[in-house]
Design a protein around this nucleic acid. Structure first.
Lengths: 198, 198
DNA sequence: TACTTCCAATAAACTAGATTAAGAAAATCC
DNA sequence: GGATTTTCTTAATCTAGTTTATTGGAAGTA
């Protein structure tokens, strides 16, 4: 008996590697489901991150808080995305990332220790995580480039194109904290854009 | 007979995986050495990147050129670093990265096709590239955070701490193009800093 | 030796985006 | 369903960093 949630994660993995039934069921046995209610934290600054999380319902956000108390969003994690504080996960040191839920969210957890054992038991997973890490790195590098070479307006346009579904489902202040402007300035950008459109 | 250059790359790999002699020599047989003279391009915008490059002498830089002709440096690659246009390498599409040499440089090339075959022949390499990609991702994420939450002065201080050897070996305008300010403003930052130091 | 090219420093004018403040609209909560 | 909190908008003022321009020095080169 495979649940809907388990189906979603198996589909996600099938995009890059092919598992036997035995391998799939072994993998599923390592996962635990967790509910994160709206605004609830899954991880806080200073904590040690010991799991990778796969979102299958809702939406998480990963962000840092700077010296002046401003939030800067590193990642949104809607369904089908993996999220963690990778620095903390890899090093075992306390991280600086805060991860909380923008709406009622359901995730599946894979403990770091289980993940490492999984690499030994089913080396294909080494491949799977290599590939999604590569894709993530490409996206992150593009974000560094965009931050340096685009204006705030252009970054907003980019965001609209790249994440059309998020635009209507999350508050604007969250988008502002992702593209790196104040909510006030984003509001100004939008009003100018709307005037231009008639 | 193992050359000095081959020794360097084997050491680099030994930090994460252990190879038998046969595996090491197979791996080395896939590599080709290339010299890149100062200011010479290894890769240009619009080209398709078909190799990963490992620097064992000199220094490369990867950068983009924006709509106004300004350069933005994504990565310096001093000895012991890997560099490529990963977007282009993964997708097979033309990339936007320019890669050239800041000084006379020597690299070892691993073709994408060979790299993929290597994953099949010696799965340990899947692990090796997963790990260095993870480390690279962590560094890139930190750079996104820094770009959003630090001032230009703070980003300069960070750079000095993080890459103390580069500070004295590359022109300041290159550092400015990395931390995301104009050379003029970096000069101003430095003069204020020097006054403060007496 | 002069010729050129590249690099760093300085300064005044300028602008994208931040800050501050205040009100309107929406969502959330008893 | 009314109170309360959160989100969005508008507008005036302010500032970190850019732009433009000029100078002097260092390094390569004929």
């Amino acid at each position: 008996m495979v649940t809907e949630a388990q189906n979603i994660i198996l589909q996600n993995i099938a995009r890059h590697i092919t598992l036997t039934e035995a391998e799939a069921s072994h993998f599923l046995s390592l996962l635990t489901v967790q509910n994160v209610s709206k605004k609830q934290f899954w991880l806080k600054e200073g904590e040690i991150c010991r799991h990778s999380a796969f979102v299958f319902e809702g939406c998480l956000r990963g962000y840092t808080v700077d010296a002046n108390g401003f939030e800067h969003i590193l990642q949104f994690a809607p369904p089908n995305w993996w999220i963690s504080d990778m620095y903390s996960l890899l090093t075992g040191n306390p991280g600086q990332l805060m991860i909380d839920a923008l709406e009622p969210t359901r995730i599946m957890l894979l403990a770091k220790s289980d993940q490492e054992q999984l690499y030994k038991d089913i080396p294909k997973f080494e491949r799977f995580f290599r590939i999604i890490t590569e894709n993530s790195l490409v996206a992150n590098r593009q974000r560094v480039i965009d931050a340096m070479s685009l204006t705030a307006r252009e970054r907003y346009e980019q965001f609209c194109q790249r994440y059309p579904t998020l635009i209507n489902s999350i508050p604007q202040k969250q988008i502002a904290a992702y593209i790196g402007v104040t909510p006030e300035f984003l509001s100004k950008l939008r009003s100018i854009r709307n005037k231009a459109k008639g």
